[in-house]
C-alpha cells in the first residue's frame, strides 16, 4: 500500500533526479582522473614512450613555464582572435549569402551547381593559394577560418529559409507585406534555431581552418606551437597546445549553447 502524498511523490521525483545527476557527474570525473592518472603512470613506467606521448606532469610544467613568461598567453590570444573573427565572418557572410539567394529564386537556381562544387571542395586545400594571394599573416589565417564555414552555412541557412512554414508567409501576404517585410517578420526569426545549430558546427570548423592556416604560415599561435614542437621534437609542447585548443573550443561551444537557450525561448 502506498500512502505518499502528492508533495512527497514530487519530492521523491526531485531527489531521484538530483541523485542521477550526481551519479553522472561522479562517473565523468572518474573517467577524467583515471585517464590522466593512467597516462602519467604509463609514461613514468615507460609503457609508452614519454618522449612522444609526454605526460600530464610534463605538460603541466610546460604550461606553467610558458604562461609565467607570458609567451603562451600571446599565442593563445592570437589563435583565439583569429578563430573568433574567422568564425564570425564565415557565419555572417554565409547568412548574408543565403539571404541574397533567398531574395531571388532564379539566382539560387543559377548558383546551385557552383555552390555544390564549392561545398564539396576541401577548403583547407585552398590554403596555399590564399596565402599567396593575401600574403602570410593574420589576414590569410582569418580567411582560412572563415572560408571553411561560409559555404556550408550558406547552404544550410538557405534551405532553412525555404522550409519556413508557407502559412506564416500567407498571413503576412494577406496584410500586403513586401518580400523584405516577409523576410524580416517571418523567415528570418523562424530560422534562428537552424542558424544556431550551424553556429555550433562552425565553431569546430573555424578551429580547423585557423590551426591549418597557422601550420602553413604563422610564427605565432597554437597551431604554430604544434608545428614548432613537432619540428624540435618537443611533444610536451604539442600536447599542451592541443589541450588548450580543446578547452577553448569547448568553451566557445558552451557560449553558443547559452546564446541558444536565450534566443529560442519562444521559437517553438
Amino acid at each position: 500500500m502506498k500512502h505518499e502524498s502528492d508533495h512527497q511523490l514530487f519530492e521523491n521525483y526531485q531527489r531521484n533526479l538530483k541523485r542521477e545527476k550526481k551519479f553522472v557527474l561522479v562517473l565523468q570525473l572518474i573517467i577524467l582522473v583515471s585517464f590522466f592518472g593512467f597516462w602519467e603512470l604509463a609514461s613514468s613506467m615507460y609503457w609508452i614512450d614519454p618522449l612522444i606521448f609526454s605526460s600530464p606532469s610534463e605538460i603541466y610544467s610546460v604550461l606553467l613555464d610558458k604562461f609565467s613568461d607570458g609567451s603562451m598567453l600571446t599565442h593563445l590570444q592570437v589563435t583565439l582572435f583569429e578563430t573568433v573573427l574567422g568564425f564570425l565572418i564565415g557565419t555572417i557572410l554565409g547568412i548574408i549569402m543565403a539571404t541574397v539567394l533567398w531574395s531571388s529564386e532564379r539566382l539560387s537556381n543559377i548558383m546551385d551547381p557552383y555552390l555544390v562544387v564549392m561545398n564539396a571542395m576541401p577548403k583547407v586545400a585552398l590554403g596555399p593559394i590564399i596565402i599567396v594571394a593575401i600574403g602570410p599573416g593574420y589576414l590569410s589565417i582569418i580567411t582560412m577560418g572563415a572560408i571553411i564555414s561560409v559555404v556550408i552555412t550558406t547552404l544550410v541557412v538557405y534551405s532553412a529559409f525555404r522550409e519556413v512554414d508557407p502559412n506564416y508567409v500567407k498571413v503576412l501576404k494577406s496584410f500586403k507585406a513586401s518580400r523584405g517585410q516577409i523576410f524580416k517578420e517571418a523567415v528570418f526569426p523562424a530560422t534562428i534555431p537552424a542558424m544556431i545549430s550551424t553556429l555550433k558546427v562552425n565553431v569546430g570548423l573555424s578551429w580547423v581552418g585557423v590551426v591549418v592556416g597557422e601550420f602553413l604560415v604563422s610564427n605565432e599561435g597554437l597551431g604554430y606551437l604544434i608545428v614548432y614542437g613537432f619540428q624540435v621534437f618537443d611533444f610536451s609542447l604539442v600536447m599542451s597546445s592541443l589541450i588548450l585548443i580543446s578547452i577553448f573550443a569547448a568553451v566557445m561551444y558552451k557560449i553558443i549553447e547559452r546564446i541558444e537557450t536565450f534566443l529560442i525561448k519562444h521559437t517553438k
Binding site: 506564416y168 498571413v171 494577406s174 517571418a186 526569426p189 523562424a190 519562444h266 521559437t267
Partner: peptide, 14 residues
C-alpha cells in the same frame, strides 16, 4: 482583406 487560416499561425517569437 482579413485572412484566417485553419490554424492560428501566430508568430511564436512575438
Amino acid at each position: 482583406i482579413g485572412y484566417m487560416l485553419q490554424q492560428d499561425y501566430l508568430f511564436p517569437w512575438k
